[in-house]
Computed example of a mutant assay.
Amino acid sequence: MYDIDFIKKGEYLLHVKKFFLYPKFWKDPTKMLTVPTSWNKVKFTKSNRSMIPKSKGIYCFVVQPDLINFFETTYLFYVGKTNRTLWIRYKEYLDEKEGKGKPRNKVFEMLNQYADYLYFYYTEIPTSIDVDSFEQNLLNTFVPTVNTDIPEAKISPELKNLYGS
């Protein structure tokens, strides 16, 4: 007899994500980072906050399964920037994960669904560099699935609502 476990199917559907993989954007010189960067990787946990610097910068949330005997596999979910400090921004995400304030649905989902596999990549940006344009380049290059404000999508109707609402 044929049967479908609808509860299990619903659980599976919670983990279906869309990713925009467009090589032309990766090679576009207008989207390139113009300043050398040094990225650091920290597992996103409360205890790792002390490793985060008190300087402005760009950060990304990446989901990385811990698979034994397999090559490293990562999924870029979110890109952000802070003109305050990465240390403060990290704390704000810890609070958002716990539902404090007004959590954003897609961010709250990412922080909780993938908590055991979530990494915080960051790079410090010198004060003379405009972090806003730096972030815009990354957003326009990768169009991460959790970000809702993609600058290029405002002028390119083909990118609007790429992931639905």
Rank of each mutant, 00 (worst) to 15 (best):
Y2T: 09
D3A: 11
I4Q: 08
D5G: 05
E11M: 13
Y12A: 11
L14H: 11
F19C: 08
L21T: 10
L21W: 08
Y22P: 10
Y22W: 13
Y22G: 10
K24T: 14
W26R: 05
W26C: 05
P29L: 03
T30I: 12
K31L: 15
K31C: 08
M32L: 14
M32P: 04
T34A: 14
V35H: 14
T37C: 12
N40F: 07
V42P: 00
S47E: 15
S47P: 08
N48L: 06
M51C: 12
S55E: 13
S55R: 14
G57T: 05
G57K: 02
I58P: 02
F61G: 00
F61T: 01
V62W: 00
V63H: 06
Q64F: 01
Q64M: 12
P65T: 04
P65Q: 05
T74C: 07
Y75M: 06
F77K: 08
Y78C: 04
Y78P: 03
Y78A: 04
G80K: 11
N83I: 02
T85E: 01
W87L: 10
R89K: 07
R89G: 00
Y90A: 00
E96F: 09
K97N: 02
E98S: 11
G99Q: 06
K100W: 05
N105A: 12
K106Y: 14
E109R: 05
E109I: 09
D116M: 03
D116Y: 02
Y117L: 12
Y119C: 01
F120Y: 07
T123R: 07
I125S: 03
T127P: 09
T127G: 14
S133I: 13
F134P: 04
Q136L: 13
L138N: 08
L139M: 05
N140Y: 02
V143R: 06
V143G: 04
N147R: 03
T148A: 11
T148E: 15
A153S: 09
K154A: 14
I155N: 15
S156F: 08
S156L: 13
L159P: 11
K160R: 15
K160P: 05
L162S: 03
L162K: 03
